[in-house]
């Protein structure tokens, strides 16, 4: 019963049994393969956006469409949410159930807040005549940002599901393993957002 520390990314839970350890290692590696394929989807959307930035078709440009303050608030909300989930992962390691709920609830609320802000931004754009149909630039912008938004929505649903699972099943092995993967997914979404604000919003405002 030797404990090998640091085998897979994400918060490592303490493993006492070799087969559990192997199971965790393999499933987490598989989840990384999924995350990286997802990253490639986003990369291609970024390439599409980057080649479309100047194709405004007489419609509004990035400088007219993007608000720096709004993007900054969205960034902060998502970063705080990511941090809150990190704290939930640490609490999971210590098996502190009330603390896990508290931090997961915080990251869920912040994630929903982010979605609300993004929805307000996108519907505001459509209302002001900057809808995806106007130009290649706006089509690729809406596609990229709403793909990320859909991921955040899926992650939020997953957080709710996991909170129910903790309540019903307790912190059993399968639940812990799923929480580990949810944590990776949630952190990954914040990673994508870094690229979104660095490639879309900041250069768009600066031009």
């Amino acid at each position: 019963m030797t404990e090998r520390a640091f085998q897979h990314p994400g918060i490592n839970l303490a493993h006492a049994r070799e087969e559990d350890h192997l199971h965790a290692e393999v499933t987490v590696f598989g989840f990384w393969v999924f995350l990286m394929s997802d990253a490639i989807i986003f990369a291609v959307l970024f390439a599409t956006y980057a080649s479309m930035t100047t194709r405004t078709n007489g419609g509004p440009t990035g400088a007219e469409v993007f608000q720096l303050s709004n993007a900054f608030i969205e960034t902060l909300v998502l970063l705080f949410s990511s941090f809150a989930f990190g704290m939930a992962s640490v609490a999971l390691r210590e098996s502190r159930v009330p603390t896990i709920y508290r931090w997961m609830g915080a990251s869920l609320l912040l994630g929903l807040g982010f979605l609300g802000l993004e929805l307000r931004e996108l519907t505001g754009l459509i209302a002001s005549g900057a809808s995806p149909q106007v130009s290649g630039f706006l089509s690729s912008f809406f596609l990229l940002v709403s793909t990320h938004g859909l991921h955040v929505l899926a992650g939020s649903v997953w957080i709710v599901v996991m909170m129910v699972q903790i309540a019903v099943l307790g912190l059993r092995r399968e639940v812990r393993s799923l929480l580990l993967r949810l944590g990776l997914f949630w952190q990954f979404l914040d990673l994508i957002w870094i690229v979104i604000f660095s490639v879309v919003y900041l250069p768009g405002v600066a031009q």
Partner: peptide, 30 residues
């Protein structure tokens, strides 16, 4: 050990040095 628990009972909190280190890591990264 929490990982061995296949039962439905809720585990007792186990403070550990690793968790403290990880918490510090998250705060630093944040």
């Amino acid at each position: 050990d929490p990982w061995t628990g296949a039962s439905t009972r809720i585990h007792r909190p186990q403070p550990s040095a690793d968790a403290t280190r990880e918490r510090r890591g998250y705060i630093r990264g944040f």
